[in-house]
Computed example of a mutant assay.
Amino acid sequence: METFRQGDKDVRWYVMADDDTVLMVDSLVEVLAKYDHTKSYYVGSNSESVKSNFDFSFDMAFGGAGYDLSYPLAEALSTKLDGCLLSAHPQTPFLSLHHIDTIDPIFPSMDRSESINRLMKAVKIDQFCLLQQIICYHRQSNWSLSISWGYSAYIYENIIPRSI
Score class of each variant (00 low, 15 high):
100 I>H: 13
68 D>R: 14
57 S>C: 11
60 M>Q: 13
146 S>Y: 01
100 I>P: 07
38 T>N: 08
161 P>T: 14
43 V>T: 00
39 K>Y: 03
94 F>L: 05
129 C>Q: 06
80 K>N: 13
126 D>K: 03
106 I>R: 05
86 L>M: 02
37 H>I: 04
72 P>M: 01
78 S>Q: 03
70 S>M: 05
32 L>C: 07
131 L>W: 08
160 I>S: 03
87 S>N: 07
105 P>S: 10
121 K>P: 11
70 S>Y: 04
141 S>G: 06
62 F>S: 09
55 D>W: 02
111 D>N: 07
122 A>V: 11
70 S>N: 09
129 C>N: 06
125 I>P: 08
65 A>R: 15
114 E>R: 12
77 L>K: 04
33 A>R: 11
119 L>V: 06
155 I>G: 06
90 P>V: 15
35 Y>W: 10
55 D>Y: 02
45 S>F: 09
35 Y>V: 08
76 A>T: 09
117 N>D: 11
77 L>H: 03
79 T>M: 10
148 S>T: 12
105 P>Q: 14
161 P>Y: 07
147 I>Y: 02
43 V>H: 01
95 L>E: 15
160 I>Q: 02
130 L>A: 02
122 A>G: 12
128 F>E: 12
114 E>F: 10
88 A>D: 10
99 H>F: 02
92 T>Y: 09
160 I>E: 05
124 K>P: 10
56 F>S: 07
96 S>D: 15
100 I>V: 07
154 Y>H: 14
33 A>Y: 10
92 T>K: 05
141 S>V: 08
75 E>A: 12
44 G>C: 01
121 K>I: 15
64 G>F: 08
50 V>D: 11
82 D>N: 11
47 S>Y: 15
78 S>F: 08
111 D>K: 09
61 A>P: 00
147 I>N: 00
72 P>H: 03
71 Y>D: 04
40 S>W: 00
55 D>G: 02
131 L>Y: 04
45 S>K: 05
83 G>P: 04
143 W>R: 00
121 K>W: 15
41 Y>W: 03
130 L>F: 06
158 N>Y: 01
41 Y>C: 01
151 Y>R: 00
72 P>R: 01
83 G>Q: 01
84 C>I: 10
104 D>T: 08
152 S>D: 12
92 T>D: 05
86 L>E: 02
79 T>F: 05
156 Y>I: 04
93 P>F: 05
